[in-house]
Design a protein around this nucleic acid. Structure first.
Length: 452
RNA sequence: GAGGUUGUAGCUCAGUCGGUUAGAGCGUUAGUUUGUGGCACUAAAGGCCGUGGGUUCGAUCCCCAUCUUCCUCCCCA
């Protein structure tokens, strides 16, 4: 048997865990500060909960779990005979792994609506799974950190979420641009160009403007049946830098105007803060179908971190009808997500992790002989009772080996114990960074190592 | 899902135009040194050459399949 992790999954070494906890910790602290409460949902959900929520592509990326027991008994025989996997799958796999945290959250809200206080502000930090092809910064198992509010359409929440983005990335030391747009504005764009029916096609195409350029978008639009005239109109509107400049293009009372009004409200809230990096981006579309209002995306600011290229490290938006498919209509929600895996890569590449993210034990006790080892064990217990992190080498003798263990683990102090120390009731405390050492009683030892 | 790429010791990587016993550096273990990290020297352990099949007298090498790594597209975090 070969020891390896599955495709797109990773083991995390102690140092990596420490760094990940650092990221999660900062995000969590900010979430809490804005009065969000943590929930968790199961890794598995009914396939009926998951499928159909992420579009055709998304369905293909869902991990399905084979039913237990005699799963073929209830299988669709015709599909089985015809080797029709897509038809067969639902009859042999009723469960799947969650694809994101938002859809399970919608299910959660409907399920527990009687026990929740609305507007309900929740955050959730858990892994999700996608059968995607792995790439740089993309895995089949990865963590999402989500904060959502449901049960209010107040635009104050959009502003709060922008603040959260701003605060988290400031604490992490990453210079970012928080991009904002509004699906209603995008709809207005399509309407003004006379292609309201091709709204989705249009958003998908213009989202790629930075990637494939103007010509690429033109080509994609014409392939999707958009006339040249409409395309020209769209490009004219895409040139604006401020959202108010779009107002003349839209008819009074239209969706587009509503979207602009929403953006204005968000900016009104933000204008009283120190936030300078909230930028309107008319090209921002976001693929997920369920967004209906403001949408967000966070990217590393390439002016601050020159030449740094990385996909978005956070995204979110307003969705009006997420819970309606679970039988609870008129429940508006808005949320954001942090891409923890990519944030990890950004911090690594920009060297922004603070030193000493890993909390190490403060001392390794080492004994010269069996009798000393028993004494060392006793010392360890005493120190641990005082709240110190103490390690002890499991066998006596061979100081060289024991010191190497302490050094390799990055521990600062070695506590050497032999006949003499046991007799004097002391520990030979050696600072492994400076090489200094002296015999200390327990009281002194405690104060030395707790100083770090 | 489409295209490309990678896989040889714990790690990084050589190598064999198809031929006896597959190498290096680093690391590991032991010793020189039974109360002290480094360096040096000595020695040892460690490999179905990703997996399965094919061609061949003979395959780690060539062919096919499959899994895996990394990358591009799609989509996303």
């Amino acid at each position: 048997m070969k020891a390896k992790t599955l495709k797109g999954t990773r083991d995390f070494l102690p140092e990596q865990i420490a760094k990940r906890k650092y990221i999660f910790g900062i995000i969590e602290d900010v979430f809490k500060k804005y009065a969000f409460s943590q929930i968790e949902t199961p890794a598995m959900e009914e396939m009926s909960t998951l499928s159909g929520k992420y579009g055709e592509e998304g369905d293909k990326l869902l991990f399905k779990i084979l039913n237990n027991g005699d799963f073929l008994e209830k299988a669709d025989e015709k599909a089985l005979l015809e080797k029709d996997s897509f038809k067969l799958a639902p009859t042999i796999a009723k469960r799947g792994l969650r694809y994101d945290l938002t859809v399970p959250f919608a299910r959660f809200v409907v399920n527990n609506q009687n026990d929740l206080v609305f507007p309900f502000k929740r955050y959730q930090i858990q892994p999700v799974w996608r059968a995607d092809r792995p790439q740089r910064g993309r895995y089949q198992e990865f963590y999402q950190c989500d904060a959502d509010v449901v049960g209010s359409d107040g635009l104050l929440y959009e502003a709060e979420l922008v603040q959260i983005y701003h605060e988290v990335f400031k604490k992490l030391g990453i210079g970012v641009q928080i991009k904002i747009n509004n699906r209603k504005v995008l709809f207005g764009l399509a309407e003004a160009a006379g292609i309201a029916d091709k709204f989705v096609d249009m958003t998908i195409a213009i989202d790629k403007l930075d990637k494939i350029g103007k010509e690429g978008v033109e080509k994609e639009l014409s392939e999707r049946g958009v006339s040249l005239e409409s395309t020209e109109k769209i490009f004219k509107m895409l040139e604006v830098t401020h959202f108010e400049d779009l107002r003349p293009f839209f008819n009074e009372g239209s969706e587009g105007i509503k979207g602009l009004d929403e953006l204005k409200q968000v900016y009104d809230f933000i204008s009283c803060t120190q936030i300078k990096n909230l930028v309107f981006d008319v090209k921002l579309a976001r693929g997920l179908g369920y967004y209906t209002g403001c949408i967000f995306e966070v990217a590393v600011d390439t002016h601050i971190h020159e030449g740094f290229v990385m996909g978005s490290i956070g995204g979110g938006g307003r969705y009006d009808n997420l819970t309606s498919s679970f039988g609870l209509p008129n429940m508006s929600g808005v949320g954001i997500s942090f891409g923890a895996e990519r944030i990890f890569d950004v911090l690594t590449e920009l060297n922004l992790f603070p030193p000493n993210v890993e909390s190490k034990s403060s001392i390794v006790l080492m004994a010269m002989d069996q009798n000393s080892l028993v004494y060392a064990f006793q010392v360890a217990s005493t120190l641990r009772d005082q709240g110190l992190n103490v390690d002890i080498y499991p066998e006596s003798g061979k100081l060289k080996k024991q010191i190497k263990y302490a050094v390799d683990k990055g521990v600062k102090y070695a506590g050497i114990i032999g006949d003499q120390e046991v007799a004097d009731q002391v520990v030979m405390c050696k600072n492994l960074e400076t090489g200094e050492q002296r015999a200390l009683g327990l009281e002194d030892l405690m104060s030395v190592i707790s100083r770090g």
